[in-house]
Design a protein around this nucleic acid. Structure first.
Lengths: 248, 248
DNA sequence: TAGGATAGCTACTCATCAGTATGATACAGC
DNA sequence: GCTGTATCATACTGATGAGTAGCTATCCTA
């Protein structure tokens, strides 16, 4: 069980926090020597570890991946992995953050768009879909509360909630500005996020479509709806034109 | 890792298959005495084991649930659980089947409906959503290839594929009979199934909405689409009337 | 009522795996 | 060259948990 295993987590080594540890030591000797090769090396290697973890989790699942597996993939030993990362849980967490960060960025960008809420939502969902189809998509979507300590779990929950609230808000604004058909924002956000999240379950790299293409297709499906429209083309063109005008 | 643990699976005890083992032994002594109390008892208890497993998987996840946990929940010992089920993997598999069976039933029922494909799809998705929100929903949605032996994995894949193909077919038929807006059946099926599957991630019992209500809400969202419609109400009423006429 | 089948338990085995203690090597700065 | 720190390996600990051996009790049938 996760909880009992977690007991040992508080017993931490000095090196635990990785780069932070490095700079702390550096600070003692000189103000800022963190710009040296060593520091950059470390960061690069650390990212390689996270990337390797994401890849392994992707293919075998979190629980079926041992840290020995990750180490082997990098052709190093397990303690080396622990040198860059404090524990397995943190590895999952970092992958999660790497996956969700682009989505947060998409919201920031969308906020600057001068366009209808539907078009802004379109932009966000496009990035969302791409993020889910990325190498960190699996981790972002499948990171489970049950596998994480309460602290990490809470952190992840709040990040997820931020995204969810962002989508709901765009939906509400869209209903208000008339660009989105009246709907329950909460349920609609669940439906949209669910469909996009699910991409992580079936999408594999080197498939015929890229993440961006899938996202675009999904958006069209959501926008049109299943019930036939007579003027769908016209509506979509109008939306696209509006978006194009707003973008640049 | 799952693979190495699986090594021991072929070494099976005589009781392994549960009811099948019972009837095999019975067949040696008498033609059919399986109708007795004992046999029924066993089936009931076996189902209780599966249900307990589903409940535990639901709350703690497959990997964080030990068979001791399940046994404790039933107030029996671990070997008792093994008396009804051959291994943990089978437990997951049975939960999966219990979850997906109602959906297969929904397809069979829908096939007999004399209505537009969209209305038949509506009916199927309604049951789909309910199934995902049921106690076996988690297992159905989250059962991962990586946690199962190749045989089980293939079995589950084929069941999932059957559902997927069923949805695609209804979509194709709908596009043909004009009840569904032209779309890519494959991608649209992914979007629909994804949104519904995702319910298992956020839905918890004793929430304000029932599974059926959520499914109904989702269907409305899918049908209308995000782009505003002038005649949405009319379209939906027409569809509902058609469905009502066909049902009885 | 004897004997076999059914149902259950206690107490194990054994593999796996997260995480660590300890030591070796390489490299930077003096 | 010398010293301390960064980096990495070998070889371990300790806990967990799937699955089993073997014993006991109960029930059904002849």
């Amino acid at each position: 069980m996760a909880t009992s295993r977690r007991k040992t987590a508080p017993g931490r080594t000095a090196r635990e926090t990785g780069p932070a540890g490095t700079s702390a030591t550096a600070a003692r000797s000189s103000p800022w020597r963190a710009s040296g090769e060593r520091a950059r090396d470390r960061q690069i290697k650390r990212e390689a570890v996270i990337r390797a973890a994401a890849h392994a989790f992707n293919h075998k699942g979190y629980h079926n991946t041992s840290l020995d597996d990750i180490a082997a993939a990098l052709k190093v030993s397990k303690p080396t992995v622990y040198y860059y990362v404090s524990n397995k849980e943190q590895l999952l967490f970092e992958c999660f953050v790497a996956g969700i960060e682009p989505i947060r960025g998409a919201f920031r960008k969308a906020r600057r768009l001068k366009a209808s809420a539907r078009v802004r939502l379109q932009a966000v969902l496009g990035h969302y879909g791409q993020a889910v189809a990325s190498e960190f998509g699996w981790c972002m979507v499948r990171a489970e509360d049950q596998d994480l300590s309460p602290v990490m779990s809470a952190h992840i929950k709040s990040l997820k909630s931020e995204i969810d609230q962002g989508i709901r808000r765009l939906l509400r604004e869209g209903v208000q500005d008339g660009s989105i058909h009246p709907c329950d924002p909460k349920m609609t956000a669940f439906a949209l996020a669910g469909a996009l999240n699910w991409i992580a379950h079936w999408y594999r790299e080197n498939q015929s479509m890229t993440g961006a293409q899938i996202a675009a297709t999904f958006i069209t499906i959501f926008e049109n709806g299943l019930i036939p429209r007579v003027n769908a083309e016209a509506a979509r063109r109008a939306g696209a034109a509006l978006a194009g005008r707003a973008r640049r």
